[in-house]
Design a protein around this nucleic acid. Structure first.
Length: 457
RNA sequence: GUCCCCAUCGUCUAGCCCGGUUAGGACACCACCCUUUCACGGUGGGCACCGGGGUUCGAAUCCCCGUGGGGACGCCA
């Protein structure tokens, strides 16, 4: 059997939608799974402004997600050009074939595709106009996910607008023929269009490719499919929030597909190995940002130190955490690694670590009131300061041992020192391990902060 | 309105093709445990086969009809 050739054909709108990302992903996975070719084709028949910039959104998003294309813009290939705006001669040539075969005609300045069969005028109630129906036979769509689908195409349709530009249905089919596409994997919203495409393939005397119409992603609240305006619909949102692309890819792969059994978190090689078209679900999937966030956290937790630090730094730059970025890199690294096991997303990192980089941190009054209302925190703080003044700060455990020894002496618990100590040093009641925090901040800063806090009591 | 697709916990889903399960997992939720705060983690819990008819000894699984959800009906892609 000949090599699988699939294509992802976005139009440069300036946004990269999560649904597009998943369509791209399924195509890419199928290509990688079968050892086939993944083609990127730009459907820019509309003369969009800032075209270059919009194209970069597509390239950047695909690259970020790790989906490299084998043929397409930038990398070339034997069936180029890969931008439809540069393929006009090819469309003219194919149009001529239709004209020669008597399968296209001009009307109202546009060129229409001509269906075969008996014609009759019918008034369409819904569209409030008279249309010409053609007694055609139903088109058969061979779909890897839906099975055999029949749909009757019974009206001629425009293939070239009166402004001379070809329309989507036409260019789509022509390019799939010209680029020798074997499998068309796209959203289910195209299933109804497919009868038009099948008619065109037939008119060109070409066997249609195998179709695979994947389920749509529905918005998490309210009716309908996800659209650009919905929360979480754009890939750039995840980039801005510091999501890991591999987590997003893993999540997206599971939206409408799964390998059977209980497997969820999988390395991409595993997903490629297991992915197949017939295993794709037929029903639409509702987007769930909580599950995505969880997947992202799981990936974040297992990142090696160097990568985590790099990701953290990039996120701090996006968050414009200037104090953190101005700090000594070695110090920043320690702070960030201290936080890694604790945070659920990179997005919260800047706020989570802010007090490490300024003496001017905010003291949470609610926490303060709560902590100061219990026992004798002032005394505990004095004892803690005294102990820390001479404690061995070389490691978390030596600090821990010192505080534990103090607690033993006063017949109290570690917790009695922790809550007030944390409050004095960080202004809050949440954060990384107390001893780790002390160690990274260093004795001088810790003692100074405690003294400063004591002065406010 | 016409046509097309779909239907298991709140959500993503396994199981369905090849009828017999205490209908499994994950996220979310609740409780408890762990614990040095907060998280992570662990244990447990509540939560589903859309409805009605068939077929069958037996239906989540096969068939039909409803209902519900989604999509397409452009000189957009």
């Amino acid at each position: 059997m000949s090599q699988v050739r699939v294509r992802f054909a976005p139009s440069p709108t300036g946004f990269f939608h999560i649904g597009s990302a998943r369509t791209a992903l399924f195509n890419w996975l199928y290509a990688r799974h079968t050892g086939g070719v993944f083609v990127l084709r730009i459907e820019d028949t509309d003369q969009a402004r800032n075209s270059e910039e919009f194209l970069n959104v597509i390239y950047d998003s695909l690259n970020w997600l790790g989906m490299t294309w084998d043929e397409g813009p930038k990398v070339g290939g034997a069936y180029g050009p890969y931008r439809q705006s540069e393929r006009a001669p090819i469309y003219k040539e194919y149009l001529q074939k239709l004209l020669d075969a008597g399968r296209a005609y001009e009307k109202d300045g546009a060129i229409w595709f001509k269906l075969l069969g008996e014609r009759s005028e019918v008034f369409d109630d819904h569209r409030k106009k008279t249309v010409t129906k053609v007694a055609n036979t139903p088109a058969v769509i061979d779909d890897q996910i839906r099975g055999r689908v029949e749909r009757l195409e019974d009206e001629d349709f425009v293939i070239f607008r009166s402004d001379g530009n070809p329309v989507f249905h036409f260019v789509n089919v022509v390019d799939d023929i010209a680029m020798k596409i074997t499998h068309v994997i796209r959203g289910e919203d195209h299933l109804s269009n497919t009868s038009k495409h099948v008619e065109l393939f037939k008119a060109f005397g070409v066997q249609p490719p195998v179709f695979a119409h994947i389920p749509l992603i529905l918005k998490q609240n309210g009716p309908g499919k996800m659209s650009k305006r919905d929360q979480g619909a754009l890939i750039e949102e995840y980039q801005k929030k510091g999501y890991l692309p591999e987590a997003l890819v893993n999540f997206l792969a599971l939206l409408g597909w799964n390998p059977g059994g209980d497997r969820e978190k999988m390395p991409i090689e595993e997903i490629i190995r297991l992915f197949d078209l017939p295993a794709v679900n037929q029903s639409n999937a509702r987007f769930d940002d909580k599950k995505l966030a969880h997947m992202n956290m799981v990936y974040l937790l297992e990142q090696p130190a160097d990568r985590f630090v790099a990701l953290a730094r990039a996120q701090l730059e996006r968050a414009q955490a200037t104090a953190a970025l101005a700090a000594d890199p070695a110090y920043l690294r320690e702070v960030v690694l201290l936080s890694q096991p604790k945070i659920k997303s990179l997005e919260e990192l800047a706020a989570y670590t802010a007090y490490f980089f300024t003496e001017d941190f905010v003291v949470d009054v609610k926490v303060r009131d709560k902590v100061m209302a219990k026992g004798d925190p002032k005394a505990r703080l004095s004892e803690l300061a005294e102990t820390l003044a001479t404690a061995d700060f070389s490691s978390d455990t030596t600090i821990e041992d010192a505080i534990k020894a103090l607690a033993t002496r006063t017949a109290l618990g570690f917790g009695d020192y922790q809550s007030v100590g944390r409050l004095a040093v960080s202004g809050t009641n949440v954060g990384p391990s107390l001893t780790g925090m002390f160690r990274v901040l260093g004795r001088e800063r810790v003692l100074a902060r405690i003294a400063k806090f004591q002065a406010t009591l």
